[in-house]
Amino acid sequence: PEDLERKVRELQKNGVSPEQIEKILRRDGVDEREVQELVKKVS
Rank of each mutant, 00 (worst) to 15 (best):
P1M: 14
P1E: 09
P1V: 12
P1C: 11
P1I: 14
E2P: 09
E2L: 13
E2K: 11
E2T: 13
E2Q: 12
D3I: 06
D3W: 12
L4H: 04
L4K: 03
L4D: 01
L4C: 03
L4E: 01
L4M: 05
L4W: 11
L4Q: 03
L4T: 04
L4R: 04
L4I: 08
E5R: 09
E5Q: 08
E5T: 07
E5S: 05
E5F: 10
E5V: 11
E5C: 13
R6C: 11
R6H: 09
R6L: 11
K7P: 00
K7A: 05
K7C: 08
K7N: 03
K7S: 03
V8K: 01
V8Q: 00
V8D: 00
V8R: 01
V8G: 00
V8I: 10
V8E: 01
V8T: 01
V8C: 03
V8Y: 06
R9W: 11
R9L: 11
R9C: 12
R9I: 08
R9M: 09
R9N: 04
R9A: 08
E10F: 11
E10T: 06
E10N: 08
E10S: 04
E10G: 04
E10D: 11
L11T: 00
L11F: 04
L11G: 00
L11N: 00
L11E: 00
Q12F: 15
Q12V: 15
Q12R: 14
K13S: 09
K13G: 05
K13C: 12
N14A: 14
N14Y: 09
N14L: 13
N14P: 00
N14C: 10
N14V: 07
G15V: 01
G15L: 02
G15C: 06
G15R: 04
G15I: 00
G15Y: 02
G15H: 04
V16W: 13
V16N: 08
V16T: 06
V16F: 15
V16G: 01
S17H: 07
S17E: 05
S17Y: 03
S17F: 02
S17G: 06
P18F: 14
P18L: 15
P18T: 13
P18D: 08
P18V: 15
P18A: 12
P18C: 11
P18H: 07
P18S: 09
P18K: 13
E19H: 07
E19N: 05
E19R: 06
E19G: 07
E19D: 10
Q20L: 09
Q20P: 00
Q20D: 14
Q20Y: 05
Q20H: 06
I21E: 01
I21D: 00
I21N: 00
I21P: 00
I21W: 02
I21G: 00
I21S: 00
I21L: 04
E22P: 01
E22G: 08
E22W: 12
E22K: 13
E22Y: 12
E22A: 14
E22C: 15
E22T: 10
E22L: 14
E22N: 03
K23A: 14
K23C: 14
K23Y: 11
K23F: 12
K23R: 11
K23N: 12
I24A: 04
I24W: 05
I24N: 01
I24D: 02
I24F: 04
I24T: 03
L25I: 03
L25Q: 00
L25Y: 00
L25G: 00
L25K: 00
L25W: 00
L25R: 00
L25P: 01
L25N: 00
R26Y: 05
R26G: 04
R26M: 12
R27K: 10
R27H: 11
R27W: 06
R27V: 08
R27A: 15
R27G: 08
R27I: 08
R27N: 12
R27F: 09
R27Y: 08
D28H: 13
D28S: 09
D28V: 07
D28N: 07
D28C: 11
D28L: 15
D28Y: 15
D28T: 05
D28K: 06
D28I: 14
D28P: 03
D28R: 05
G29S: 02
G29R: 01
G29I: 02
G29E: 02
G29Y: 02
V30P: 01
V30T: 03
V30L: 14
V30M: 09
V30R: 03
V30G: 02
D31E: 08
D31F: 03
D31M: 05
D31Y: 03
D31A: 10
D31N: 09
D31R: 03
D31H: 06
E32R: 03
E32I: 07
E32K: 04
R33D: 10
R33I: 08
R33F: 08
R33N: 11
R33Q: 11
E34P: 01
E34S: 12
E34I: 15
E34A: 13
E34K: 14
E34L: 15
E34C: 15
E34G: 03
V35S: 03
V35Q: 02
V35H: 01
V35T: 03
V35W: 08
V35I: 15
V35D: 01
V35L: 14
Q36P: 01
Q36L: 10
Q36E: 10
Q36S: 07
Q36D: 05
E37W: 09
E37A: 12
E37G: 04
E37V: 07
L38H: 03
L38S: 02
L38A: 08
L38E: 02
L38W: 14
L38M: 10
L38D: 01
V39W: 05
V39N: 02
V39S: 03
V39E: 01
V39H: 02
V39C: 09
K40Y: 13
K40G: 10
K40I: 07
K40N: 13
K40R: 11
K40Q: 11
K41L: 14
K41A: 07
K41H: 08
K41R: 10
K41D: 04
K41V: 05
K41I: 10
K41N: 08
V42L: 15
V42G: 06
V42R: 03
V42D: 04
V42K: 03
S43M: 15
S43N: 12
S43Y: 15
S43E: 09
S43W: 15
S43G: 09
